[in-house]
Amino acid sequence: MAGRERSTKQAWVTREKLDRADSATRASLLRAAQSVFERRGYARTTIADITGEARVGRATFYVYFASKEDVFAVLAREVRDRFVAAQELTGVDADDPYAVAEATNAAFLDAYTANLAFITVLEHQSLTDPDMQALWEEIHSRPRRRTTRYIQRLVDQGVARPAAPPESVARATGGMVAMFAPLVARELERRPEVIAHVTAMFLRLLGLEPRE
């Protein structure tokens, strides 16, 4: 009996080690693929480029991914999930529109800046790939819908008098962040300034005076 228990325990330990190794290899391939896609673009990237970057054989690639399209789609979904996570604010008073505006714009700007190189490739690929077009739209539409609902709540509470319908204000704010992201990527020291300016413009669109 004790022998079987030791055998079972050893099997679990072995499986756990293999799972960790599998996870590490898959993660390495993803990071390598992202790096190559960002440097070479989608069309010029090959599986050989990715495996060379990851320093693994072609057979190893096919253990985890079916194709170049498959690994690119996984990376695109990761980016989408990061943008969704950026909307999950903690430690912010939901009833304070000034704090929410600043925290939301900062989180969205950081997500955009951190993923800017891949987003550029994804946007280009979305022009010809319907699946990537849907993902590209989802990356922007999820935050936009959440911001729209938040603005509408402020309107219903009599807190905000937006300059345009809530959905239009949410769309404009997302566009401002996207436009400023390349600047912050080049000049990181300007991040606080950009967040302050975008937040001030957003508050103006809401009909709120910026705080000193």
Results as ranks from 00 to 15, higher is better:
residue 1 M to L: 12
residue 3 G to L: 15
residue 4 R to P: 00
residue 4 R to Q: 11
residue 8 T to Q: 15
residue 13 V to G: 01
residue 15 R to F: 05
residue 16 E to V: 00
residue 16 E to I: 03
residue 18 L to Q: 15
residue 21 A to W: 06
residue 22 D to A: 01
residue 23 S to V: 02
residue 24 A to R: 04
residue 24 A to D: 11
residue 27 A to T: 12
residue 28 S to V: 05
residue 30 L to V: 10
residue 31 R to A: 11
residue 32 A to H: 02
residue 36 V to G: 05
residue 36 V to A: 04
residue 36 V to P: 00
residue 37 F to N: 05
residue 38 E to V: 07
residue 41 G to K: 08
residue 41 G to I: 11
residue 44 R to H: 13
residue 44 R to C: 07
residue 45 T to Y: 07
residue 45 T to F: 05
residue 47 I to V: 15
residue 48 A to E: 15
residue 49 D to G: 00
residue 53 E to F: 01
residue 55 R to A: 14
residue 56 V to S: 03
residue 56 V to R: 03
residue 60 T to W: 02
residue 62 Y to A: 05
residue 64 Y to D: 02
residue 64 Y to G: 07
residue 69 E to H: 14
residue 72 F to W: 09
residue 73 A to Q: 12
residue 76 A to E: 07
residue 77 R to I: 12
residue 78 E to Q: 15
residue 78 E to G: 14
residue 79 V to P: 10
residue 80 R to I: 08
residue 82 R to Q: 14
residue 82 R to I: 08
residue 82 R to P: 11
residue 87 Q to F: 09
residue 91 G to N: 09
residue 92 V to E: 02
residue 98 Y to T: 00
residue 98 Y to C: 02
residue 100 V to F: 07
residue 102 E to A: 11
residue 102 E to C: 06
residue 106 A to R: 13
residue 110 D to Q: 14
residue 111 A to M: 09
residue 111 A to I: 09
residue 113 T to M: 04
residue 113 T to N: 07
residue 118 F to H: 08
residue 122 L to W: 11
residue 122 L to Q: 04
residue 122 L to V: 04
residue 123 E to T: 15
residue 124 H to F: 08
residue 125 Q to N: 11
residue 128 T to D: 09
residue 131 D to R: 12
residue 138 E to W: 06
residue 142 R to A: 12
residue 145 R to K: 13
residue 146 R to K: 10
residue 146 R to A: 14
residue 147 T to S: 13
residue 150 Y to E: 10
residue 150 Y to N: 03
residue 151 I to S: 01
residue 152 Q to M: 01
residue 153 R to S: 09
residue 155 V to T: 06
residue 155 V to Q: 01
residue 157 Q to Y: 03
residue 158 G to T: 08
residue 159 V to S: 00
residue 159 V to C: 03
residue 160 A to S: 10
residue 160 A to Y: 00
residue 164 A to I: 02
residue 168 S to K: 13
residue 170 A to K: 04
residue 171 R to V: 11
residue 171 R to G: 01
residue 173 T to N: 10
residue 173 T to F: 01
residue 176 M to D: 01
residue 178 A to G: 06
residue 180 F to E: 12
residue 186 R to H: 11
residue 187 E to Y: 13
residue 189 E to H: 12
residue 189 E to P: 01
residue 189 E to R: 15
residue 193 E to N: 05
residue 196 A to P: 00
residue 196 A to H: 08
residue 204 R to L: 12
residue 205 L to D: 04
residue 206 L to H: 00
residue 207 G to M: 01
residue 208 L to I: 05
residue 210 P to L: 06
residue 211 R to T: 04
residue 211 R to F: 00
residue 212 E to K: 10
residue 212 E to R: 15
